[in-house]
Each structure stands twice: as structure tokens, then as C-alpha cells.
């Protein structure tokens, strides 16, 4: 089951937002208050702290910010590459849903492993 399924079934509530090209969704170091599920379009993720000039395009149905769920601030900057549709989820709501639903936990763990894999590739 994907995060989108959880939203469609009403187990996670969020607001749909549409952004134009080049909009900054959040900046590295900014306080985390929302996670974003990209439903249409594409988003580039950039890490300016490591000094690695690297930009990654988030895969479809990726929940932006999930890798920083246990942090206070975002660890990368997210920017739209084209007109993009997102579902905005509050961090507190996601944390609460995680406590309540093991299937959601599993789905989010998969996403986090994608992020871990991405970091490894960057260092190779």
C-alpha cells in the first residue's frame, strides 16, 4: 500500500496544492512542519551542505521530507521542475498515523531506504 492509498482511504488527511515551475517548496535547514506527496510533476532535491553539487529528481509518489521525520529541520532543498501537484501533510499527523498503522510504517521505511541508497550513490 502506498502513501497515496492511505490518503485516498482517508487514513491520512492533507491539502492538495498546485505549484508552478521553479518554486521552492522548502529550504535546507528550515524547520519541518509539512511533508509533501508529489502526485503530478517533478521536484528536484539538492543538498548544499555536503558540498556535493548534486541534484536528484524525486521518484513518483515520494513523500518529500519523510527522511527528516525525526529531525527538526529539512536536510535538503526541494524545488519544482515543472508545474507540480502536491499533497501537503502536517508532520504531526504523519507521526500520529505512523503510531497507529503498521502498513504505513512499512511503506515509509521503503521510502527511507531509497533515500539511504541515494546517499550511498552520491559518495561512490
Amino acid at each position: 500500500m502506498s502513501v497515496r492509498d492511505f490518503i485516498e482511504r482517508g487514513l491520512l488527511q492533507g491539502q492538495t496544492e498546485t505549484l508552478g515551475t521553479g518554486n521552492c517548496i522548502f529550504k535546507q535547514g528550515e524547520k519541518i512542519s509539512f511533508l509533501y506527496l508529489v502526485t503530478q510533476g517533478s521536484v528536484t532535491l539538492a543538498d548544499n551542505k555536503t558540498g556535493i553539487d548534486e541534484q536528484v529528481v524525486a521518484p513518483p509518489d515520494f513523500l518529500l521530507g519523510i527522511t527528516d521525520l525525526l529531525h527538526d529541520t529539512y536536510s535538503f532543498t526541494a524545488r519544482t521542475l515543472e508545474p507540480t501537484v502536491l499533497i501537503r501533510l502536517s508532520k504531526e499527523r504523519v507521526q500520529q498515523a505512523l503510531q497507529e498503522n503498521p502498513l504505513l510504517r512499512l511503506s515509509l521505511l521503503k521510502m527511507m531506504s531509497w533515500e539511504a541508497g541515494r546517499t550511498q550513490t552520491a559518495f561512490e
Binding site: 496544492e17 521552492c24 517548496i25 522548502f26 529550504k27 528550515e30 512542519s33 509539512f34 501537503r88
Partner: peptide
């Protein structure tokens, strides 16, 4: 100076 979408939503 600027406003990210997250700051704007907040």
C-alpha cells in the same frame, strides 16, 4: 527576503 512554500503555508 523570500518565502518557501512551507514558510508560506505556515
Amino acid at each position: 527576503n523570500d518565502l518557501t512554500f512551507t514558510q508560506q503555508s505556515n
